[in-house]
Amino acid sequence: MSFQAVMSQVMLGLNNGVFYAMLSLGLAVIFGLLNIVNFVHGALYMLGAYVALLGFTRLGPLVGLPDYQMNFWVALVAAPLVVGALGMAIERTMLRRIRKFDHLYGLLLTFGLALILQGVFTNYFNVSGDPYEGKPEIFNGAVNLGFMFFPKYRIFAILASLAVCFATWFVIERTKLGSYLRAGTENPELVKAFGVNVPLMITLTYGFGVGLAALAGVLAAPIYSVSPVMGSEMIITVFAVVVIGGMGSIMGSIVTGLLLGMVEGFTKVVYAPASSTVIFLIMVIVLLVKPAGLFGKEA
């Protein structure tokens, strides 16, 4: 077990970690305001990746421009917008109607939506996945980090995700807009009384949260193969991340996501067969030692 082997796996793990962070961040934001565990989050992450993939391979011929291939940078903007819009439609037409019921119904409804999305894509695409070929040329090659050569694209994905995570944290914790959001999480009725349009805020928050998932999907597309089941595999791990970190804190979900990604990478070097379950095992330990989660505020 050389230092290089450990470090390279930890770096690859960090790459997973930024996606965990981005997804659990979205879940936390949505849970805070809507009190819904968004099971469809993983499916929307997958949808984001497919917007990039299909934009690159199928969109042009479909609209009569056979040579058009949606650029990676365009996808990076388009996917969150498309998925965010879909999310807002879901919130308006469905989630809103069950707000007054037990929040278990929110989980069940979004689970149903996840099945629908995954089912539709399973019908048209191969479960083993398709590669995304639209990676910009400037990301070809690798950078020498001293202990390893790390692909340029992965460095970009890590930095971009971190930037998005911290920007989100800054907006929520340090701006006026964020203060409305935090107040809405604490007491929506009172915030409404102050003249803030809470229903609109909820719709936008949901759209933003799932937009983050789509963005993570686009960033993941050049690294992993794009497949209909990429979301369901992801969401279960992210749920464990969320249980470990607790959904009460924005920074908590970011840090937990990053750390767990690296731990997962580290486990690959130490004992590879355990790498797919290590996050769940950590969850067990956290439940035994600190049941409310590392950053949880639950009584």
Partner: peptide, 8 residues
Amino acid sequence: TVIIGGIF
């Protein structure tokens, strides 16, 4: 799967 999801 889609039908099951829809029923849900």
